[in-house]
């Protein structure tokens, strides 16, 4: 494993889906793409965002798995379900705070991002982070990210009262030390002040 770390910066994403296409080229699940790419609310905005597995320190997906089918490697990568064990119950799909695992109906099993274990375990970068043209997904050293980016990498999250620590970092403005997750809608984000900056018609009126 290289000393690289994975950094996500949702806000940079341009929705090109290179990550989605490249994910399906990774040998551990070639032909099936594991990454999620969300269009947030196309009517209102062109915002899109990727979601890979965050590789939690104490993965909730694994805790709620009745078959004990989700394991972490010594280097902290949470693997796809163990095939002889997974019974396709979707507990993990429904419990992961980041909405990561995918239930594959054709094989009745869960599959998820394993950070391109075939690549990262031999010192290569994961597929998505190699191709991503916007740097929304980046795999590099901590020094490099601190040198080149505004903001700071953070890997602590709060969902309700649940604190989750992840191997993957998210880029946030300097003063932030933890991402406290509350429910937001696009219309209620600060980005929508002054009212709805994404509405071209309103921009023209001002």
């Amino acid at each position: 494993m290289t000393n690289g770390e994975f950094f996500i910066d949702y806000s940079r994403c341009i929705g090109c889906e290179a990550c989605v296409q490249a994910c399906g080229e990774c040998d551990t699940h070639r032909g099936v793409s594991m990454i999620h790419l969300e269009t947030i609310e196309r009517r209102d905005s062109v915002q899109t965002a990727p979601q890979i597995c965050m590789h939690c320190e104490d993965p909730i997906c694994a805790q709620v798995c009745p078959a004990d089918a989700i394991k972490k490697t010594p280097d902290g990568v949470v693997q796809s379900s163990l095939k002889p064990r997974c019974i396709g119950c979707s507990n993990c799909v429904m419990s992961c705070p980041f909405g990561v695992p995918k239930y594959q109906i054709d094989i009745d099993q869960m599959m998820k991002c394993d950070m391109c274990y075939d690549r990262t375990s031999v010192g290569k970068k994961p597929m998505c982070a190699t191709v991503c043209p916007s740097g929304a997904l980046t795999f590099t050293t901590m020094q490099d990210i601190q040198r080149t980016r505004q903001g700071v990498p953070v890997n602590e999250w709060r969902f309700g009262v649940e604190i989750v620590r992840t191997k993957v970092y998210v880029m946030v403005p300097k003063e932030v030390t933890r991402v406290d997750v509350d429910l937001v809608q696009i219309a209620t984000t600060a980005a929508a002040l002054p009212p709805d900056p994404y509405d071209v018609a309103l921009m023209l009126e001002s």
Binding site: D9, Y10, A49, Q51, P97, V184
Partner: peptide, 23 residues
Amino acid sequence: YQDVCPKCRRRNLALMQDNMWKS
């Protein structure tokens, strides 16, 4: 949070983070 669907969890996270930068 269990009553939020996985897709909304993903969208919500992205909105939250983007919002931090915007603010």
